[in-house]
């Protein structure tokens, strides 16, 4: 059995309490949500926080709610809730697609939306999906709330815009008309992290793409997005050729590294295939075809 180093534990009563505890225990304390990223790192002694501040009791961080023309995800919403949500199924199929291939039911029952974003693992599927969606992250400190576009949230592998005494409290996703979305991941086995994954959000005006969001996971794409491919799609006809071209551009601009999941040329190839497929499916969904 792998065992972590010694650490202290505090159960936060509410948001204000959690923020106070984080401030009191300083930069070596960590909030713990689902624990499915943090605890393995502690057991491997890659992380040795002095104190864990447990935020699982913070009911104010729960819930998936429609809030005007946006959908709000509380930071403590579990993967499983996203997967089961009717609101998500209706408006944000990219998230349902992604959740189906994130880890396994045990991890999904505990792992959270906030934890996924804050972990900032370069392979995190939700980071790619929220980036494609152009989401906004709500960060709370004792001084109040601030919002950061998700595309500015990640500062690099395992680094985010959140300071040690702050918490992510919610993620807001805009609902756009005539828009469809999709996500696809290639993995070596169910529950494995992505070899490569892509998510697309496509808004149509008739036959023309008026806006495209393309997220990429596990291939070294800056801020998890394929900005050049998005740009190329704007105003383009929603055809297989355009989507293949977007895939080609995304493949060219991402920066995958070789590991046991595959060599660089393969990962680039996958980006091309997956971007084209997800754009195609997103457009079909925007047209109400699937």
């Amino acid at each position: 059995m792998q065992v972590p180093a010694t650490f202290g534990y505090e159960l936060a009563p509410d948001l204000a309490g959690a923020l106070a505890l984080l401030a009191r225990h300083g930069p070596d304390a960590r909030p713990i949500a689902g624990g499915h990223s943090l605890l393995p790192m502690m057991k491997l002694r890659l992380a040795e926080p002095t104190v864990l501040v447990d935020i699982n009791g913070l009911t104010e961080l729960g819930g998936i709610t429609v809030d005007g023309d946006a959908i709000r995800f509380g930071a403590m919403v579990r993967h499983a809730e996203v997967l089961d949500s009717a609101v998500v199924a209706e408006h944000l199929p990219i998230l349902r697609d992604a959740e189906r291939v994130i880890a396994d039911p045990l991890v999904r029952n505990r792992g959270t939306v906030g934890g996924s974003l804050c972990q900032a693992d370069p392979s995190e599927d939700l980071s790619a999906a929220f980036s494609a969606l152009g989401a906004t992250v709500v960060i709370t400190s004792r001084d109040g709330e601030r919002t950061v576009p998700v595309r500015e949230f990640h500062r690099g592998p395992y680094e985010t815009a959140v300071a040690h005494d702050e918490l992510v409290t919610a993620v807001r996703v805009p609902i756009r008309p005539a828009t469809g979305s999709a996500y696809e991941k290639v993995e070596r086995r169910t529950g494995d992290w992505a070899v490569a994954a892509a998510g697309a959000v496509v808004s149509l005006d008739g036959h023309t793409v008026v806006r495209a969001g393309i997220g990429l996971a596990a291939v070294g794409a800056e801020h998890f997005v394929a900005a050049e491919a998005e740009e190329a799609l704007r105003g383009a006809p929603a055809t297989a050729e355009s989507f293949a071209e977007a895939g080609r551009i995304a493949a060219e601009h991402c920066r995958p590294t070789a590991d046991q999941r595959g060599p660089v040329d393969y990962k680039r190839h996958l980006v091309g295939v997956l971007v084209a497929r997800t754009c195609h499916r997103a457009a079909a969904r925007a047209r109400g075809e699937v």
Partner: peptide, 15 residues
Amino acid sequence: LTPAAVWSAMQGRPL
């Protein structure tokens, strides 16, 4: 025969 191994074989560059 992971996806990468299969694809590489299809390219004539087996891993």
